[in-house]
Computed example of a mutant assay.
Amino acid sequence: MGYKKMKAIIFDLDGVICSTDHYHYLAWKSLADDLNIPFDEKDNERLRGVSRMESLDIILEKSKENYSLKEKEQFADRKNKLYQQYLLKMSTKDLSKEVKETLEQLRKKGLKLAIGSSSKNTMLILKQLGLDTFFDAISDGNSIQYSKPHPEVFMKAADLLNIPYKECLVVEDAISGCFAAKSASMNVAALSSAYHCTFADYHLNCFKELLDIKY
């Protein structure tokens, strides 16, 4: 199971370090309602681990209108502004004690810790959580060309850490993220919605089980 030696852990952000799914849903729901497009929490599940523009395309599948690229970009920008308004309500209280203590224990083990998230709001979220200076490297939607399941975001994080891909463990809650990590020959610890991922190296019932893995 996995490789014998791991020197770094790369965390997805949404759904792993914290939960912003509900804020994403509220923002997309508001936009969909304005466009008279049916959208519910089941539809929202399809957007997990997907980039903003790709998420918008999924939502627009139910639309009878054909929108130009410029209009789509305006819709995506409107959604993001709504989402950021919700994010500003976040605080250090949104970082669970379990996650905080686990991160601190992993750091004490001498592991390099990084974020690998497709979100372009990564720094805002980390700042609200009080983690903006905690991680050794941050790879996010502002520095990549391809979103998951492409492995670029994780590869960039490993490159910033100067750690070989095979010595990195990725923590993911989405199948697309697990696939991205394995595509880069990285180890994968799957939790939450990705728990039953058949090709994951580790299956976590909770975040603190990261401490049970032999690094």
Rank of each mutant, 00 (worst) to 15 (best):
L191H: 02
L69Y: 06
L211W: 07
N36Q: 06
K62F: 12
G177S: 01
K64D: 15
T92W: 02
L113Q: 05
S176L: 15
K7L: 11
L13K: 11
S119D: 00
K156C: 01
S96G: 04
K89V: 10
Q84H: 09
Y3T: 11
A174Q: 05
G2W: 09
G15S: 10
P149T: 14
I37G: 07
A76D: 01
S183Y: 06
K70F: 06
Y67F: 15
L82Y: 07
Y83R: 03
I9N: 05
D132P: 05
M6A: 07
M186T: 03
M90I: 14
K182C: 07
T133D: 15
L211A: 07
Y165F: 15
E73H: 06
G116M: 08
E61W: 11
M1I: 05
L161P: 05
M186N: 00
L106W: 13
A181V: 14
R78D: 03
D12G: 12
Q85L: 09
M1Q: 06
V16Y: 02
W28S: 04
K70N: 10
S176H: 12
F134A: 10
A32R: 02
K97T: 13
H196L: 15
D140R: 04
E71L: 06
I125Q: 03
F39Y: 15
E98V: 05
I59P: 07
D132T: 08
L35D: 07
F135T: 06
L31V: 03
Y83D: 14
G2E: 11
I9L: 05
S139L: 08
S185W: 10
R78F: 12
K70S: 15
D12S: 11
T92H: 05
A137H: 02
F199Y: 10
A114F: 07
Q74D: 01
M53V: 10
S117G: 05
C197T: 04
Y23P: 03
L95W: 11
D173A: 13
P38G: 05
Q105H: 07
D77T: 13
